[in-house]
Amino acid sequence: MFRKSFLPVSVIVSILIIWELSSRILAIPTWVLPAPTIIMQEAINGWSNYQHHILSTVFLTVSGFAIGVSVGLLIAIMLHLLPKIREALYPLLIMSQNIPIIVLAPLLVIWFGFGVTPKLLIITLVCFFPVAVSTIDGLRHTNPELIHYMKMAGATKKQIFTKLELPHAVPQMFSGLKISATYSVMGAVISEWLGANKGIGVYMTLASSSFRTDRVFVAILFIMILCLIFFAIIIAAEKIILKWHPGKEEQS
């Protein structure tokens, strides 16, 4: 564990050192690029100023992620069970990802106001896609030998789906979940930019409009930390649920 993390940690530490030194030696103004130590100071001293923003973003992210993932799974299962509908809707699904969220967001505000609805919609839009696509792939690529066995053993369509295809898609589903988890934090921050009174996104907008660049970096820091935490939670869940899954070295 220590050996594995040694390399990335040392890279991060050296970047921070270079950053710190250059901003001191070149005397870069704080409002342009604050040194890491100044950012850390603000992160510690300003905790009481911004902690309610973080809590609000966490809450928004978790609820948006939950809705997005459920929608993604439902879409995947529906499209898998109804191949005709899959044919019809799959291109639409992909097109939905071509619309820049930043363009869509103001529209959603016009339609749904400044409440929580447009924010959840944005996170859902960002989150459902990776889960839906990876789950559909997992469902479709079920080992044909196993399907053949199930048919010979007299399994009904429903049994083939619940006992074979669904569990077979779980590893794939998790790779989608990991992407969605990191996207969900970004989705939440973007949705907060539109107009909210709390959240990391709000804190960030306020900080940048008042040239508190150090606070912008504090916001970035917390966005990264949240992403990592969500990612770690998904990995932990994956480890527990996929305990049967052979390690990479055993897969041939």
Partner: peptide, 27 residues
């Protein structure tokens, strides 16, 4: 009529997420 006989295919066709015990009771 499907499922009238018990069948063992060329490849073991075991379900990787089931333990041996869970696999043998599948049929």
């Amino acid at each position: 009529k499907k499922g009238s006989i018990s069948y063992m295919p060329q490849t073991p066709s075991l379900f990787p997420w089931r333990t041996v015990l869970e696999n043998v009771v599948l049929s």
